[in-house]
C-alpha cells in the first residue's frame, strides 16, 4: 500500500512541475454565442504566441457573474451591461464580434431557409398560443410548404444566456404580449417548452425532437444543418439569415465608447437587416491591469488577423471604425 501511495505522490509531483515552462494562461468564461470563434482564435493564437486563452462557454449570465466575482480573467456576455452597472462592479466592456440569432425548426420535408415567419407568429409559438405547424397563420405565409399536424415543441435555453437575451429582447420589442407576460432577459420564465443547456444543448434537442422549434446562434444552426427560418424584418421584407443580413444590421448600429458600447442591434431598420442580430461583449476587471493587457493583446491580434476566421464561422467582424473606437477606449483606460 505504501509503495502505491509513494508512486502516486511521485507521479503527481512530476506532473505538477512539468508545467514549469508554462506560458501565460488567460481564463475566460461566458457567452456560448461567440464560443466557436473565440476557441478558433485562441487555438491559432496559441500556435503563434504560446499563450493559452482558455475560454469556457457557460452562458452570458455566468460570464457576468464570474467576472464580478473575479474568478476568471475576463467575462463574455451578449447582454451588454449598462454603464452604471459597469461602474458599480468596476468593469470595462467592449464588443468583440457580431452575429445573429436564428429560429431553428425541425419540421419534416422543410429545408433550411424555406420556412417564413414573422415576429407575431414567432411570438405566439413561444407563448404556446400556436400549437401546430399547420396553424392558419403559418400556412398563409408558407403556401408552398406541406406542414405537419404534430404538436410544436418549444426548445429554449435553460441557462442564463445572452442568446436568450437577444432573442427575448427582440420578442419584447416587437410583440407587446411577450413584453407583458414574459419580458426580456438572459433567463426568462418561458411559458412552454423544454430547456437545453447552451447553444449546443438547444441545437441538440431540436435536432432530436420532431416538430420542435428553438433559437440558436447562426453558426450552430449552420454547422448542425438545422432548418433555420426566414423572418420578416422591420422594413417588412422576409430575409434569410446569413452574413449579408447580419452585416446590414451591424451597420445600423452606433456604438458609443462613452456608454461602454452599450447597444442592442435587434429589430434593425435596414431593408435587408436580419432582425435578431447582436454584438457580443468582453468584460474586464478594472484593477487587473497586467492580465487585461494580455487579453487586450489577444483581441488586438484577433481584430487584425481574425476577420477571415470569423467570417468563415458566419460572424460579422466589427467594422473598421468601431475597431478604432475600441482601441481608443483601451488606450483611454490604460490597457494598451
Amino acid at each position: 500500500m505504501k509503495t502505491i501511495m509513494k508512486l502516486a505522490l511521485a507521479i503527481a509531483l512530476v506532473l505538477s512541475f512539468t508545467n514549469a515552462e508554462a506560458a501565460v494562461t488567460l481564463n475566460g468564461a461566458g457567452a456560448t454565442f461567440p464560443y466557436p470563434v473565440y476557441s478558433a482564435w485562441a487555438f491559432d493564437y496559441n500556435k503563434i504566441t504560446g499563450v493559452q486563452l482558455n475560454y469556457q462557454s457557460i452562458g452570458s449570465g455566468g460570464g457576468q457573474r464570474q467576472i464580478t466575482e473575479r474568478t476568471v480573467d475576463f467575462g463574455a456576455s451578449d447582454d451588454p451591461l449598462k454603464p452604471e452597472q459597469l461602474q458599480k462592479d468596476k468593469l470595462l466592456q467592449f464588443p468583440a464580434v457580431i452575429g445573429g440569432v436564428v429560429p431553428v425548426a425541425n419540421v419534416e420535408n422543410v429545408q433550411p431557409g424555406q420556412m417564413k415567419l414573422d415576429s407575431d407568429t414567432l411570438c405566439k409559438i413561444f407563448l404556446g398560443e400556436i400549437k401546430s405547424w399547420s396553424d392558419e397563420s403559418i400556412r398563409k405565409m408558407n403556401p408552398g410548404l406541406k406542414l405537419p399536424q404534430g404538436e410544436i415543441t418549444v426548445v429554449y435555453r435553460s441557462d442564463g444566456s445572452g442568446t436568450t437575451a437577444i432573442f427575448t429582447h427582440y420578442l419584447a420589442e416587437t410583440c407587446p404580449a411577450w413584453k407583458d407576460k414574459v419580458g426580456a432577459g438572459k433567463a426568462v420564465k418561458f411559458p412552454v417548452g423544454i430547456g437545453g443547456k447552451g447553444n449546443e444543448g438547444v441545437a441538440n434537442y431540436v435536432k432530436r425532437t420532431p416538430n420542435s422549434i428553438g433559437y440558436v446562434e447562426f453558426a450552430y444552426a449552420k454547422q448542425n444543418k438545422l432548418d433555420y427560418t426566414q423572418l420578416k424584418n422591420k422594413a417588412g421584407n422576409f430575409v434569410v439569415p446569413g452574413f449579408e443580413s447580419f452585416e446590414d444590421a451591424a451597420e445600423s448600429g452606433d456604438f458609443d465608447p462613452k456608454k461602454d458600447f452599450y447597444l442592442w442591434l435587434t429589430n434593425a431598420p435596414g431593408k435587408g437587416s436580419w432582425p435578431i442580430a447582436g454584438a457580443t461583449f468582453i468584460l474586464l476587471a478594472k484593477e487587473k491591469a497586467d492580465v487585461n493587457k494580455n487579453i487586450v493583446k489577444f483581441f488586438d491580434w484577433a481584430f487584425k488577423n481574425g476577420d477571415n476566421k470569423a467570417k468563415e464561422l458566419t460572424y460579422v467582424p466589427l467594422p473598421k471604425s468601431l475597431k478604432d473606437k475600441i482601441r481608443a477606449y483601451w488606450k483611454a483606460n490604460g490597457l494598451q
Binding site: S39, N54, Q56
Partner: peptide, 14 residues
C-alpha cells in the same frame, strides 16, 4: 476545477 481547453497541469488554475 471548471474546465480548460488547453493542456495544463497547473493545479492552481482551471
Amino acid at each position: 476545477s471548471f474546465n480548460n481547453s488547453f493542456f495544463s497541469t497547473n493545479m492552481n488554475g482551471p
